[in-house]
């Protein structure tokens, strides 16, 4: 730790101002905060809440059921980011479908799924497109590439989401937001400035120890002044204008739609789907998928956890029926999930 990071840590440990609730919106922030033990440094009057920014955690049960339908009924090879494999569907996770013969392959990038499609012309490759502003461009790039090359065996099952309308749904649940740095790297900081005008405070934060300490210190110092504030604490990555090429790409390939967030319900115009010109890459259309509605386990309180309305430990199944080995809710699956993070790192 360098001098400035130590200074930031001192500001945090010595904070004596008004009680503050800070929401980290991004799951990777949740993960890093636990990994570093950052919560242990916080004084009693500062509370960190884990928000709905882990794409795995906000992906509804029905999406997993849809993926399993494609794998088992249509014989598609499912490619996905690793975390989704253990997320429970209504009857089973993708890992369970694998035991029934489904082909499920973790990939590092949707572009690798395109490569798999090139190499296996006789197989149908479906990529599970989850994620926010940061991740959606990679899925769009995959679709544009596949279209350019005339690939007929690549498609997306989309559940992409955008943050702005989610912030509206979350308004009032925290005194300040730690904004998700890599979302802002694409989206820019205009929305943060707007939120500030509406009285919502926050800082854009990076992910290293020094970046997180700095961002929290900035929140605490500004909170004492009492005015709404916005500070970009991640300027080495996040520019005010974000990444315009990435946004244009997404606009070319996808358009906004209503979408379901696990726990938050349907938020209007907070999702992204493929435009009609790209219908041949939309797995739902391509394979004539029927409407599939998932049934989540009624005991699971992931929804309230995601909104900061309850702590994972308040949930009846937490740590008993629901563990990382046998997750009931998605928040227990991903290392980023609030419940998994509480389970793994909590209690020390």
């Amino acid at each position: 730790m360098n001098e400035q990071a130590k200074k930031a840590r001192d500001i945090i440990t010595n904070y004596k101002g008004r009680p503050l609730r800070i929401m980290e919106v991004c799951g990777t922030h949740t993960h890093e905060i636990f990994r570093l033990g950052l919560r242990k440094l916080l004084p009693e009057n500062v509370e960190l809440i884990s928000g709905p920014g882990c794409p795995v955690c906000v992906t509804p049960v029905g999406f997993i059921d849809e993926a399993i339908w494609l794998a088992l009924e249509k014989g598609c090879i499912i490619t996905t980011f690793g975390d989704l494999i253990r997320v429970p569907g209504t009857e089973m996770p993708l890992a369970g479908a694998r035991a029934k013969g489904a082909q499920v392959r973790p990939v590092y990038s949707p572009l690798d799924a395109v490569e798999m499609a090139r190499q296996n012309p006789d197989e149908q490759i479906v990529f599970l497109a989850v994620g926010f502003e940061t991740t959606t461009p990679s899925a769009c790039l995959a679709v544009e590439t596949a279209k350019k090359e005339g690939l007929k065996n690549f498609s997306l099952l989309t559940a992409n989401k955008t943050m702005p309308n989610a912030y509206n749904a979350l308004e009032g649940s925290a005194d300040a937001f730690l904004y998700p740095g890599h979302v802002n790297a694409i989206a820019g900081t205009e929305i943060c400035e707007e939120l500030k005008k509406r009285g919502v405070s926050g800082v854009v934060a990076g992910f290293t120890a020094s970046e997180l300490l700095t961002a929290l210190a900035v929140i605490l110092v500004n909170a004492e002044k009492g005015e709404p504030f916005f500070v970009n604490c991640y300027p080495r990555v996040v520019k005010a204008e974000g990444n315009p090429s990435a946004r244009e790409l997404v606009k070319r390939v996808m358009e906004p739609c209503d979408t379901e967030w696990r726990g938050l319900g349907v938020i209007p115009m907070s999702g992204m789907k493929l435009r009609d010109e790209f219908a041949e890459f939309d797995a739902r259309k391509k394979f004539g998928m029927p409407k599939i509605t998932g049934k989540p386990n009624p005991a699971c309180r992931c929804g309230e956890v995601l909104q900061g309305k309850c702590k994972p430990s308040d949930c009846k199944v937490f740590g008993k029926v629901c563990t990382p080995e046998h997750p009931v809710g998605a928040c227990m699956v991903s290392d980023e999930g609030a419940c998994a993070a509480y389970y793994q790192y909590g209690g020390v």
């Binding site: 636990f34 940061t134 980023e336 790192y345 020390v348």
Partner: peptide, 16 residues
Amino acid sequence: QTMLPQPGGELLPRIC
């Protein structure tokens, strides 16, 4: 101080 996550399950790459 923080707890090392308990071991379990297959190692899956975490991307998002």
